[in-house]
Amino acid sequence: MADVIDYEIFGTEMQYVEVELDPGEAAIGEAGSMMYMQDGIALETVFGDGNQQGGLFGKLLGAGKRLLTGESLFMTIYSNQASGKKRVAFAAPYPGKIVPIDLSTIGGTFICQKDAFLCAARGVSVGIAFQRKLGAGFFGGEGFIMQKLEGNGLAFVHAGGTLLKRDLAPGELLRVDTGCLVGMQPSVDYDIEYVGKIKTALFGGEGLFFATLRGPGTVYLQSLPLSRLASRIFAAAPQRGGSREEGSVLGGLLGGAALGGLLGGDDE
């Protein structure tokens, strides 16, 4: 069983979550997301989420997976070793909303984008879920690697901009901009659908690929994906560099540099 923690979310657009730990309870957080903690909370950095079993090999496997997802190799466990209740807070990395998800009520598993996880009660396992559908992997905005939160405790994920929680009835279909998906219950069909002409797909195009989400299940959407925010900021910045349009893989590939690099390199 995961620890049963109490929490409170503060702020409106730049939020942080304060977790209250009873004596002996603990929370796990992505290294670098902690905002403050009260005296009496001991901090231990572990490989993976601290739940790996099977000795060294299991730990290495977990570490390898985390390397693959591009996450930090370590998770930090914040455990209350004092005799009274203590608090530790985790802050969202960019404007948006912190979403508490009670894994015990949604069936024990939540699939989310790989940088969505913020913190959780000890006992929640943070793993990866490989997206096996080619289309979703290439055009899903988040690649092939997603995060899988498992357990029966509370987990907190972060969404950019404004959050929309949508409950899909059995068979109900929702088309979503690929970057706007935060996460979903595993019962939701997630795939990518192309809408439009092939010519437009080849020569640039946001919104040509949609994530199709089919119920039953709950999905969480964000109004402002970090990638979109970043690309606008990047475009507005004075210097130019290798930015990549959302949703256009071919554009990126044909962006001279890649192919020039392949063809270049004289054998002199």
Partner: peptide
């Protein structure tokens, strides 16, 4: 149809 387009693009 959509899958075909996606496959081609990939």
């Amino acid at each position: 149809a959509s899958n075909a387009v996606i496959a081609v693009l990939v």
